[in-house]
Design a binder for these strands. Structure first.
Lengths: 151, 151
DNA sequence: CTTGATGCAAAGCATTTGCACCACA
DNA sequence: TGTGGTGCAAATGCTTTGCATCAAG
């Protein structure tokens, strides 16, 4: 896994190459996603950053703008859930898919070589030039099943 | 594949069991999805129905309400795309997944036994009680690739 | 007749945009 | 210093809701 200073450097380079500026807000968002390996909505990130850094001013619009920028640069990735909206996570780890508990919203990541291979084969079969793929398994997680039994 | 009269009967039963009413609007939407085996946004359905049946009054709210009802009843299913929004299709056929062309928006359906099996195995491994699963492969379809070459 | 359904317009909600001001480079 | 970034508030776009009226049972 890439270290934070490395990631920061990568981000700064990317900004420089596109004559964009490095700002406190952009760094905060990047750092937040690096330090919190989970899935967050833009709103989540906005609220938590405001809370953790009362000294720094940040607007929700900047969070949206930065997340879009980071996603285009392949530094973060997003998945969208029905009601829960779109959530972002650092996108530097190996490609993976998600198990989502529809009761508590918990997200479990997994990687399955067989599925990856089949996806490639299917894209090829239809002469599709694959640019991305997502898989979501929805269900009830272990904990929520137990809770249901207790009731 | 189920015939339309059968489907209609099934829908009517379902309404009766829940003391809901059978209306022209509900039938129109069901019929539309039966006759047009494709993926539509609520807006699409609303516009096309108004166009095809200028005599019958229908509001966008009713389309949303009916689609929600049909989806809860497992008669239709939906997939959501990034910018293109949520699209509905008749959900009575065998479970399948989608290839989506990010250029022209075309959707190709496919079914892969290996992937289905692996998904079940994964859910089991994490003690997840699977209630649903979706897979989307994004890319550029054959036609759009050719177009790109011509430019 | 009773109850649920409908259309309309208003309200919601997440996301985007315009703009004057601010801060990197 | 100039250019791009920011926060704010207004605007947008999709979806839901409240309500008076309508129609199915």
């Amino acid at each position: 896994m890439i270290s934070y200073p490395e990631l920061l450097e990568k981000f700064k380079d990317l900004l420089k190459c596109n004559s964009l500026k490095f700002t406190k807000q952009r760094e905060l968002i990047l750092k937040f996603l690096y330090e919190n390996e989970d899935h967050y909505t833009p709103e989540d990130i906005y609220m938590l950053l405001k809370q953790q850094h009362p000294d720094i001013n940040i607007g929700i619009a900047t969070v949206y703008r930065t997340l879009t920028l980071l996603e285009e640069s392949k530094i973060v990735s997003s998945i969208s859930f029905g009601i829960q909206g779109k959530k972002y996570e650092l996108g530097l780890k190996k490609h993976h898919d998600h198990l989502i508990c529809t009761k508590c919203g918990d997200i479990i990541e997994f990687y399955d070589e067989t599925i990856e291979k089949r996806q490639e084969a299917i894209a090829e079969k239809f002469n599709f030039k694959m640019t991305g793929h997502t898989m979501k398994i929805e269900g009830i997680c272990e904990d929520c099943q137990e809770e249901a039994l207790e009731e």
